[in-house]
């Protein structure tokens, strides 16, 4: 992990007008909801998927196509270090935003005499953090494979394919294929729902192991891909 890359990526993400505008567009309305419809509680907030995409899009591919990577990788920085630092920074940026949103919503709900249970706040915040780390890993892989913002396109294609496969499998009653499509979907959105666990229910080891393996696999593949790159002025 490289502190300079993490810090600079955070600054880059939070000073990009486009990304900040998108974030405000998606995260302010739910807060207004908390203010005016307190009965709905925290459920209005959704998860960290959108924020993760806003921060993650182009996390590696844009460095490749802009050409800034040439200078960075001429420095004593391992490519794995670069990938992991970008991943962590994107995830941290997402977590910072969604946690801020949760904190504000909790305060607003409290002011409207509808304060959520601490357990629910924790479950939401924890789940959002795990999803942010997971999505950042998925996007690190996709972004290492495609230039610019094309990682978003790859994600869309993969999701559409998984959905179509799932529908087709359901229609033909092919259980194995349906199961496979579901797994792809889980891979494309690695999350762990903490609510049942915090409410004293059983710990879903399957979800935890599946999340861990997705994150590890995505990061390992992203590192393998970047290690194979050759950099020249025509690299994009």
């Amino acid at each position: 992990m490289n502190r300079a890359i993490v810090a600079t990526t955070l600054r880059q993400r939070f000073t990009s007008p486009m990304r900040v505008a998108l974030l405000l567009f998606f995260s302010v309305p739910p807060l207004l909801g908390a203010l005016f419809m307190p009965a709905a509680g925290l459920s209005l907030l959704g998860d960290s998927y959108g924020a993760a995409l806003v921060f993650a899009a182009g996390m590696i591919g844009q460095d490749v196509s802009s050409g800034t990577l040439q200078l960075l990788l001429a420095r004593p920085v391992r490519r794995s270090e670069y990938v992991l630092s970008r991943w962590l920074a994107v995830a941290l940026a997402t977590i910072a935003v969604v946690w801020t949103q949760i904190a504000i919503a909790t305060l607003l709900l409290g002011a409207r005499q509808a304060a959520p249970a601490a357990r629910d706040v924790l479950a939401l915040a924890g789940g959002d953090a795990l999803l942010a780390l997971g999505m950042a890993a998925v996007m690190a892989l996709l972004s290492s494979l495609a230039p610019g913002l094309a990682d978003l396109g790859l994600l869309l294609v993969a999701n559409v394919t998984a959905t179509a496969l799932g529908a087709f499998a359901q229609f033909r009653h092919w259980v194995a294929l349906a199961r496979g499509a579901q797994e792809i979907g889980r891979f494309l959105k690695p999350e762990v729902s903490l609510a049942p666990m915090l409410q004293g229910g059983a710990v879903s080891w399957f979800e935890i192991v599946s999340w861990l393996s997705t994150v590890t696999l995505c990061l390992a593949l992203a590192i393998a891909v970047t290690n194979r790159w050759e950099l020249s002025y025509a690299s994009s």
Partner: peptide
Amino acid sequence: LPERLTLD
């Protein structure tokens, strides 16, 4: 110093 200089 690369030939095609693209800085952040």
